[in-house]
Computed example of a mutant assay.
Amino acid sequence: MSLSQIVTQLASVAVPASTATGAPTRLNPVELFLQADIVVQAVMAGLILASIWVWAIIVSFSMKMGRLDRQNREFENRFWQADDVEPLVRTNEDLPSRRVAAAGIAEWQTSTRRGLRDKEGLRQRLASSMEAAVTSESDSIAEKLNFLATVGSVAPFVGLFGTVWGIMNSFFQIGAQSNTSLAVVAPGISEALFATAIGLFAAIPAVIAYNRFSHRVNAFETKLYRFSDRFHASLSRELETM
């Protein structure tokens, strides 16, 4: 046997059977998507879009909360150091604390415009108006979190629907070809299970982000309530001198 023949035989032994037969040696997500049934493809595409939107919300909300925390803290520092807070409140700064303070000042001016008759009633109206402003600000901040909650709860079931449909299609292929070979069933099942994997890929970050951001919104709301209570106490002290 010549040297070239020995090298050829060794090479044929070294090549894995899957490569020699042209079968893939690892999972290819793109191929799984392209070879899937049209219904499963639609499920996968929807879940991929949902995942992209989830990550867009995560990035944008993180930046927004960081900016709001910093700007609100700076505004509150200027607010408590100012001798006259009305010029600060009249500005167009897009800040929750400014709007909460503006709600309190607006109620104060409305109630005292024609003379003060009921101090205790004014105190209650001031508290109610600022509490309503705090609730409105919190709801506005948390508005986008509803999408994260929806994706986190629905995406796994949407992926499961794609998986069930793909497995049904695989069994249909078994009946159509009268062949129970694993080679007939395995590709369809792999494509079907890939839909569930994408569903989990979209749901898991959404759930984690929703829980984390809900905590941040609650903490921010607590800060607004503290600011509201402190400003209410300040107005109440001024009310006692009238």
Score class of each variant (00 low, 15 high):
Ser2Lys: 03
Ser4Ile: 04
Ser4Ala: 15
Ile6Glu: 15
Ala11Ile: 01
Pro16Ile: 06
Pro16Asn: 07
Pro16Val: 08
Ser18Gln: 09
Ala20Gly: 00
Asn28Trp: 05
Val30Ser: 07
Glu31Asp: 15
Glu31Cys: 00
Ala45Met: 13
Ile48Leu: 15
Ser51Thr: 06
Val54Leu: 05
Ile57Cys: 03
Ile57Met: 07
Ile58Phe: 13
Ile58Ser: 04
Ser60Gln: 11
Phe61Trp: 00
Met65Asp: 03
Arg67Asp: 10
Leu68His: 11
Asp69Ser: 14
Gln71Ser: 12
Glu74Thr: 10
Glu74Tyr: 12
Glu76Leu: 14
Asn77His: 11
Glu86Ile: 09
Pro87Glu: 09
Glu93Gly: 00
Ser97Cys: 13
Glu107Gln: 14
Trp108Pro: 04
Ser111Arg: 13
Thr112Arg: 08
Arg114Gln: 11
Gly115Tyr: 10
Ser128Phe: 06
Met130Tyr: 03
Met130Thr: 15
Val134Lys: 06
Thr135Arg: 14
Ser136Gly: 08
Glu137Phe: 01
Ser138His: 02
Asn146Met: 10
Val151Gln: 05
Ser153Asn: 15
Ala155Gln: 07
Phe161Ile: 04
Gly166Arg: 00
Asn169His: 14
Ser178Glu: 15
Ser181Phe: 02
Ile198Met: 12
Ile198Lys: 00
Leu200Gln: 05
Ile204Glu: 08
Ala206Lys: 03
Val207Trp: 03
Tyr210Ser: 08
Val217Ala: 10
Phe220Lys: 02
Tyr225Arg: 13
Ser228Lys: 08
Arg230Leu: 09
Phe231Ser: 03
His232Arg: 14
Ser234Met: 13
Ser236Leu: 05
Ser236His: 01
Glu238Asp: 13
Met242Lys: 12
